Lab assay of single mutants.
Amino acid sequence: SSGGSSILDRAVIEHNLLSASKLYNNITFEELGALLEIPAAKAEKIASQMITEGRMNGFIDQIDGIVHFETR
């Protein structure tokens, strides 16, 4: 797709992000992006959206560029 990722790509990214949230206590956007094979800024945006929508527990430290995952 030309304008970003398809629905399937997005679903795969979100699935992998949720998997990462179970493996890590926290991770930088750079590391997360590398893990998900997407730019760091996109990793931040998707993580932020999932947390806001209540689909993933955690919070974002924008100063240090880190996602902190919280286990249920």
Rank of each mutant, 00 (worst) to 15 (best):
S1R: 09
S1M: 07
S1F: 03
S1A: 12
S1K: 09
S2C: 10
S2W: 04
G3Q: 12
G3T: 13
G3S: 12
G3F: 05
G4T: 12
S5I: 12
S5K: 09
S5Y: 03
S5D: 14
S5G: 12
S6G: 11
S6W: 05
S6L: 09
S6R: 08
S6Y: 05
S6Q: 11
I7S: 12
I7W: 14
I7K: 10
I7F: 13
L8R: 11
L8I: 12
L8Y: 13
L8S: 11
L8K: 11
D9N: 07
D9W: 05
D9V: 06
R10P: 09
R10L: 14
R10M: 14
R10F: 11
R10V: 13
A11M: 11
A11G: 08
A11S: 09
A11E: 13
A11Y: 09
V12K: 12
V12Y: 09
V12P: 05
V12E: 10
V12M: 11
I13C: 04
I13K: 03
I13D: 04
I13S: 03
H15N: 14
H15R: 14
H15C: 13
H15F: 14
H15S: 13
N16F: 14
N16C: 12
N16P: 02
L17A: 02
L17I: 14
L17D: 01
L17Y: 01
L18F: 06
L18A: 05
L18V: 07
S19C: 14
S19I: 14
S19R: 15
A20E: 02
A20V: 15
A20G: 03
A20S: 05
A20D: 00
A20N: 04
S21W: 04
S21L: 08
S21G: 06
K22F: 09
K22Q: 08
K22L: 09
K22C: 09
K22D: 04
K22A: 07
L23E: 07
L23M: 11
L23P: 02
L23H: 09
Y24E: 01
Y24F: 11
Y24S: 03
Y24W: 07
Y24K: 04
N25D: 09
N25I: 11
N26I: 10
N26E: 09
N26L: 13
I27V: 07
I27C: 07
I27H: 01
I27K: 04
I27M: 13
I27W: 05
T28P: 04
T28L: 03
T28K: 05
F29C: 02
F29Q: 00
F29K: 02
E30N: 07
E30H: 08
E30W: 09
E30C: 06
E31H: 08
E31T: 06
L32I: 03
L32A: 01
L32P: 00
L32Y: 00
L32V: 01
L32D: 00
G33V: 03
G33T: 02
A34Y: 11
L35M: 07
L35C: 04
L35V: 06
L35N: 02
L36R: 00
L36W: 04
E37G: 15
E37H: 15
E37N: 15
E37L: 10
E37I: 05
I38N: 00
I38E: 01
I38Y: 02
I38M: 06
I38P: 00
P39M: 04
P39N: 07
P39R: 03
P39L: 04
A40S: 07
A40C: 05
A40F: 05
A40M: 07
A40L: 05
A41Y: 11
A41L: 08
A41H: 11
A41I: 09
K42N: 10
K42I: 15
K42T: 15
K42D: 15
K42L: 15
K42R: 14
A43S: 03
E44D: 03
E44C: 14
E44T: 09
K45N: 08
K45Y: 13
I46D: 01
I46P: 00
A47V: 14
A47I: 10
A47L: 10
S48F: 11
S48N: 09
S48G: 09
S48I: 11
Q49I: 08
Q49S: 08
Q49F: 05
M50A: 03
M50D: 00
M50Q: 01
M50T: 01
I51N: 01
I51T: 01
T52V: 11
T52M: 13
T52G: 09
T52H: 12
T52L: 14
E53T: 08
E53M: 07
E53W: 04
E53A: 09
E53F: 04
G54Q: 05
G54N: 06
G54W: 03
G54S: 04
R55C: 05
R55G: 03
R55T: 06
M56W: 04
M56Q: 01
M56I: 15
M56P: 01
M56N: 01
M56Y: 03
N57A: 12
N57D: 09
N57R: 13
G58Y: 02
G58M: 03
G58N: 01
G58P: 00
G58S: 02
G58T: 01
G58L: 02
F59Y: 14
F59M: 07
F59E: 05
F59G: 03
I60S: 02
I60N: 01
I60Y: 02
D61V: 08
D61A: 06
D61W: 06
D61G: 04
D61M: 08
Q62N: 11
Q62C: 08
Q62M: 12
Q62S: 13
I63L: 10
I63S: 08
I63P: 06
D64H: 15
D64S: 15
D64C: 14
D64R: 15
D64Y: 15
G65L: 05
G65I: 02
G65E: 06
G65W: 03
G65C: 05
G65D: 03
I66H: 06
I66D: 03
I66Y: 07
I66G: 04
I66M: 10
V67G: 01
H68P: 01
H68C: 07
H68V: 09
H68E: 04
H68R: 07
E70A: 10
E70S: 07
E70M: 10
E70W: 14
T71C: 11
T71W: 10
T71Q: 13
T71K: 13
T71G: 10
R72Q: 10
R72T: 11
R72W: 13
R72S: 11
